[in-house]
Computed example of a mutant assay.
Amino acid sequence: MTLKQAQALLHQHGLTVTESMTTPKRAHKPPRPVWLVSGRLDPFRALLYDLGGRTRYSGRNTFSFWDDPTIDIAEGIEEQGEATLEAQVALKDERSAERAERYSQRAQTKRQQRDQAYHRSHAAVAGIEPGQPVLVGHHSETHHRRALERSHRAMGQSVQADRAATRLSEKAAGSQAQVQKRQSKAYLGNRLRDAEAKKRQAERDLAQFPDHPTYLLNLQDAEAAIAHWSQELDSAGVLTPDDMAKGDFIRFIGRWYEVVRVNPKSVTITRWLDIEGWTYRVPYSEIQAHKPKAEAKAEAQTEGEGPPQG
């Protein structure tokens, strides 16, 4: 495959490779060539990672390579094709899990370094009685001061290692939480709304520039995303307008609210922020629980006036 053929194939799939130069932060370090891949990246992220692409310095919307990857990417696309949205989500979960594992291992190493430094700190002054002052002019003065310095230095290293272990553990927990977040109904609903907005934008673009290849790809991706996230929401058991009626109660952000209007994509609740007359629209994917009007009324009669409790 020639370079021109590879460039044509990448253009067909919405990818662009641009040659650039690095901007070194150190004055003595010379710039070097770098190739940036941008455009429609999501269906090809696994391929770009496998080819050695990195996003650390260029952001998630650009992959960087030290050598021109045009032909390698084109050959990979011909061999593997485009990744489905299911595969793209699985790749995100896999990389989040790998990142959490790396952070956990580094945190464990830091905890070991913390414990070792702590023991060194105590061992440095093991032969000195607690509270023993430095005897100025005594033959033990030099040894005593050096022992205190070693103990202080080791304790500082222990504290620094402990702080690093805490930061790494928090990062590991954050990466694990990302996987759980991507399984929540609220996340699925947000992705569906994003896909619907992208479809509307693509349709507006095509109305202005008919048969534009980039906008056709955007429309294709948006329609595939809508189908995927709609199916995921159905599997998650998200409520629909058929499940709701005016006067029902829903639980949202830990509180119960009365439904005053049922909309195609949301319900309108009253007493938002506990202010009389204020309303708010809650997407179906963000409803935490639901009680029909009859059930809520029965509970109110049993427990006293007011909305459902708990």
Rank of each mutant, 00 (worst) to 15 (best):
I250L: 09
Y284E: 05
L273D: 15
P241F: 04
D205P: 04
P283A: 04
D205V: 08
R261F: 09
P264K: 01
Y280A: 09
L206A: 01
A289C: 03
K246R: 09
F252A: 12
I250G: 08
Y215T: 11
P264H: 02
A202V: 02
A236L: 00
A224M: 03
R255P: 06
Y215E: 12
Y215W: 10
V238C: 04
L206Y: 06
S285A: 15
L239F: 13
R281E: 13
D243V: 11
H228V: 04
T214S: 13
T268H: 05
G237N: 06
D211V: 10
R255G: 03
R271G: 06
G277V: 01
K246Q: 12
D234A: 15
F209G: 05
I287G: 04
I226G: 00
R251M: 14
Q231Y: 04
A207D: 13
L217M: 05
R261N: 14
T270F: 06
V267L: 02
R255I: 05
Q288G: 07
W272Y: 14
L239N: 10
P213G: 04
R204I: 10
K265L: 09
Y215N: 15
V259I: 12
R271D: 12
Y284V: 06
D243N: 14
H228R: 09
V238M: 09
D221M: 04
G254M: 12
Y257W: 10
D243M: 06
P210H: 05
H228A: 05
A207C: 08
I226V: 14
M244V: 06
P283H: 00
Y215P: 05
E232A: 13
W278Q: 15
S230M: 00
A202W: 09
I226M: 11
R271M: 14
E223M: 08
R271V: 11
T270D: 14
W256L: 10
V238L: 08
A222E: 09
N263T: 10
I275W: 07
R204Q: 15
D221Y: 01
K246W: 02
W229Y: 15
S235D: 12
P213L: 08
R261E: 15
Q208N: 13
D221E: 10
V267M: 01
S285I: 12
E258Q: 14
Q220A: 13
V262S: 05
A222M: 10
L206M: 00
A224I: 02
Q231H: 05
A245N: 09
P283K: 00
E223I: 12
L206V: 01
G254C: 12
S266I: 02
I275H: 12
D243I: 08
G247K: 00
G277E: 05
A224Y: 00
D242I: 02
A222Y: 10
V259L: 13
I226E: 06
H212Q: 15
V238F: 09
D274I: 07
G277L: 02
W272V: 00
R251S: 13
P213E: 01
G277D: 04
L217C: 02
I275V: 15
K246E: 12
P264Y: 00
D248V: 06
N218R: 11
D221A: 07
R255Y: 06
S266T: 13
I253F: 07
V262R: 03
S235V: 07
P213Q: 05
